[in-house]
């Protein structure tokens, strides 16, 4: 009896140490973390579960027949948006020929990763459908984000509003180039993005439209995708910072399209 109670007293403290070790290991090893297989396993198990729960919740919210129709329309709409974005990306000179060729339609099945601090969503299409990591995600309104991890039947998308986001952007009218960062409140708050231009003398006014500049090789971001519209300009020394209201409504995301990278994606 005495020994058992000692075990009961020590075990919780041991668990705390194990959790701390896991955290330190995953953090210090980063991309080569030995815990990544655990994440893949969780994606394989929970991806289909999230898809089912989401479908059941959707079918309960509307009539089951209507749900199937809505599902079809959401995907079709997203696919068209993806093809449009891919076409725009191809025509933009800096990334000619390397932009997306095709788009994979998907629906958002889960939102808000971690303990809710992450602006991330799960979509119900993965590598089986041709989704690859570090590719652009759009919807009918504009830029949604980028694929961070692609599981077999699901993928994790980091939204443009996430605090880790930092992407090249361009003002549609003046062609001035800058960097857009997220504020981390896309799922819970206003979800405004911040734009800093490289040229500190450039004009920044309310109502200017911001589009993606495009990453090297169009990964993760293809060029020319509408991001949002400037709603306010703040003077934060030494430079001006524009607050950008995204076109996509992050609190009501549904159908999205993942752009498939051309060329490299062709061999699959």
């Amino acid at each position: 009896m005495q020994r058992r109670s000692r075990v009961a007293r020590v075990a919780p403290v041991l668990l705390v140490l194990v959790a701390f070790t896991l955290m330190a290991l995953d953090h210090t090893r980063g991309e080569r973390s030995p815990l990544i297989p655990l994440r893949d396993l969780a994606a394989a198990v929970y991806g289909p579960v999230e898809r089912s729960v989401s479908a059941v919740a959707g079918a309960v919210a509307v009539a089951p027949g209507a749900y199937a129709r809505i599902d079809e329309l959401e995907r079709e709409n997203a696919r068209l948006a993806g093809e449009r974005a891919a076409a725009v990306a191809r025509q933009t000179p800096p990334a000619a020929g390397t932009g997306g060729r095709d788009a994979v339609a998907a629906r958002v099945v889960a939102v808000g990763g971690g303990a809710g601090y992450e602006d991330t969503v799960t979509i119900d299409a993965g590598s089986e459908a041709g989704v690859e990591a570090e590719t652009t995600v759009v919807n009918a309104d504009g830029l949604v984000g980028r694929v961070a991890q692609a599981g077999t039947g699901s993928a994790v998308v980091v939204l443009a509003t996430d605090a880790t986001t930092s992407l090249g952007a361009r003002l549609e009218d003046t062609d001035e180039v800058g960097v857009v960062t997220g504020g981390g409140d896309g799922l819970t708050g206003a979800g405004l993005l911040r734009l800093r231009l490289l040229n500190s003398n450039a004009r920044l006014t309310q109502g200017q439209r911001v589009v993606t500049l495009g990453s090297a090789g169009s990964r993760p971001y293809v060029p020319g995708v509408p991001i949002g519209e400037i709603v306010a300009v703040e003077d934060r020394k030494p430079a001006l910072v524009a607050l950008v209201r995204p076109f996509a409504r992050y609190t009501a995301l549904d159908g999205v399209a993942v752009l498939r990278p051309g060329g490299r994606g062709a061999n699959r």
């Binding site: 075990a11 919780p12 403290v13 668990l15 705390v16 194990v18 959790a19 701390f20 070790t21 896991l22 955290m23 330190a24 290991l25 995953d26 953090h27 973390s33 815990l35 655990l38 994440r39 396993l41 969780a42 994606a43 929970y46 991806g47 999230e50 889960a110 939102v111 808000g112 990763g113 971690g114 303990a115 601090y117 992450e118 991330t120 969503v121 799960t122 961070a148 991890q149 599981g151 699901s154 993928a155 994790v156 998308v157 980091v158």
Partner: peptide, 26 residues
């Protein structure tokens, strides 16, 4: 402690989580 560890680890792993694995568990 055991419930916190297990539920926290799952929170760190279940998609769409993208942060450090083990933080919520801890």
């Amino acid at each position: 402690a055991a419930t916190g560890f297990a539920a926290g680890l799952l929170t760190d792993l279940v998609p769409p989580s993208d942060g450090t694995i083990g933080r919520t568990a801890f």
